[in-house]
């Protein structure tokens, strides 16, 4: 059972704040983390390895510092990590990202299952999983809440808005997992020691290494174009009502009448 886990390094959006003067996102000093649901993906792969044997390879596309995310995943117990980094990959939308990740998975070659997070908290697109599955020409199951592998088949519970369904599909396949699937383990001390043992812990590949065509990666390979970004503005006003419950209720009602009902 060989799995490839796709992990992305993202800014911790819970920490992102807005500059009140310029109205832009303050990125400086915002911590980078492994996308939360990608930790569930890693955990799923590690559990499959302990049940069925095989290997776990973590793959990420990002700037050189995305290596930190891979070290964390190695410390959790992944066997191998690959960092895809190249100036030519910069500015990629999901189409270009899925091409680049897809080429790298083809180069890794042997896999039974590709595991992704449901969505990344910076872009919130949830598109990479299905697009990589299409690139590789394999079946996919998204929003996975539970999974097992039996006799060469994947049996996965796919969450729906009002329930769930169970999908059975032959391997190789791709899943995108939600945080309901499991609780990711923490890196162990030995894991951290061995992950950081040497620079060779992470393989670094560029565009040439995966035979990527220049017009299909990065900004050139991205049909979508971000024309504008804005930070939603909102005005807040606080009115304190005093007195007893009766008085407070009257004050609230008067305020609502004035503001909403005009």
């Amino acid at each position: 059972m060989d799995t490839v886990v796709l992990v992305k390094q993202v800014p911790d959006t819970a920490e992102v704040s807005i500059d009140p003067k310029t109205g832009t996102l303050i990125r400086e000093g915002v911590e980078s983390i492994v996308n939360p649901e990608d930790l569930n993906a890693v955990e799923a792969a590690l559990r499959l390895r302990s049940d069925h044997g095989g290997t776990v390879t973590a793959l990420t596309m990002g700037p050189p510092q995305a290596r930190e995310a891979l070290l964390e995943v190695l410390a959790m117990g992944a066997d191998r990590a690959v960092l895809l980094t190249d100036k030519a990959f910069a500015g990629a939308d999901t189409l270009a990202t899925s091409y680049t990740l897809g080429r790298a998975i083809e180069k890794i070659g042997r896999f039974d299952l590709v595991v992704c997070g449901r969505q990344a908290i910076d872009g919130d697109t949830a598109q990479i999983g299905p697009q990589v599955a299409e690139f590789l020409g394999i079946p996919q199951v998204t929003y996975v809440q539970a999974l097992e592998v039996r006799d060469g088949f994947l049996i996965a519970r796919r969450g729906l808005e009002d329930g769930y369904e169970t999908i059975k599909t032959p391997l190789p396949a791709l899943v995108t997992v939600t945080s309901d699937l499991n609780s990711p383990r923490l890196p162990t001390v030995e894991g951290i020691m061995s992950a950081c043992a040497g620079p060779e812990a992470v393989d670094v590949w560029n565009a040439a290494d995966i035979g990527a065509m220049a017009d299909r990666t990065g900004i050139r390979g991205s049909p979508t174009w971000v024309a504008k970004t804005e930070t939603p503005s909102k005005a807040r006003r606080c009115v304190m009502a005093g007195g007893g419950d009766e008085e407070k209720a009257r004050a609230a009602a008067a305020e609502i009448r004035k503001r909403i009902l005009g």
Binding site: L95, A126, Q127, A133
Partner: peptide, 23 residues
């Protein structure tokens, strides 16, 4: 952008090689 649409649309956009904007 339901669990069906978000499963299906990216697969098609990749097949057609075109852009897709989520949600």
């Amino acid at each position: 952008a339901t669990h069906v649409g978000r499963d299906l649309a990216p697969r098609i956009s990749r097949r057609l090689g075109v852009g897709l904007t989520a949600d």
